[in-house]
Simulated assay, not measured.
Amino acid sequence: MSTARLYLAGFEVFAPDGEQRATRMREIVIASGLEPLSPLDGDKSTNLDELSGHDLAMAIFRINVEMIERADVVVGNLNPFRGPDPDAGTCWEVGYGHGRGKATYVYTEGPRTAIERTEQLYPPVTRREDGSAVDRDQMTIENFGHPFNLMLACCGTYVHGDFAECIRTVAADVAAGKVPVQA
């Protein structure tokens, strides 16, 4: 039986200790009996140090897409990033994985609803006469009980918790045969 391969999408790659975070994440995945594919694993056949600008961006894009193609599952960190919303790149990777038929699992430790998240990270939230919530720019805030846009909350399995809890959920679903694994 093949081991499920998990593409680990998230903004950790931008952190000063990104490689250490990726190492800890890989260890959690491996301890769960699964195989991690981290964007920081890269492509050993491409020397990214020799590239810059658009060429570097295209190489990173190609490498990440190839890893998503090899994955059985895309796991996305949808915690707030530079504001109330998740990292745009992570959102794209989750959407791409979903569109390619991969199982998708997303997680956040933050507030449970988009309204709470916006109030905390992009205040103030006010109410219109009809009761709908709006942000400081008077834009309606989705009120479906999810912490982020419904297109992310509804495209797979949403876990309210940390990375380790999300991986436990993935591992349980793989063990139960709920996640198809490529040979």
Score class of each variant (00 low, 15 high):
V29G: 08
N77Y: 01
E165T: 14
V75I: 15
S132K: 11
A175I: 03
N149E: 04
D85R: 07
C155A: 12
I141L: 01
A172Q: 11
D41I: 09
I167K: 01
Y158I: 05
G76D: 06
G89H: 06
T46Y: 07
V13S: 11
R82S: 01
T3H: 11
G18Q: 10
P124S: 12
M139L: 14
V179S: 05
Y96H: 06
A9P: 09
F11N: 13
L56E: 05
T46I: 15
Y122N: 14
I68E: 04
R70P: 05
F11L: 06
V159F: 01
R24T: 03
Q182I: 11
D130N: 05
P86F: 03
A31V: 02
R26E: 08
P147I: 01
L152V: 09
P86I: 06
V94H: 07
P39D: 07
A176E: 06
G89E: 01
R117N: 08
G33W: 05
M151Q: 08
G10S: 05
Y158V: 01
V29M: 06
Y105P: 06
T90S: 13
I167R: 02
T46G: 01
P147M: 01
N64V: 04
T104M: 13
K178W: 09
N47G: 09
A57C: 09
K102M: 00
V65S: 14
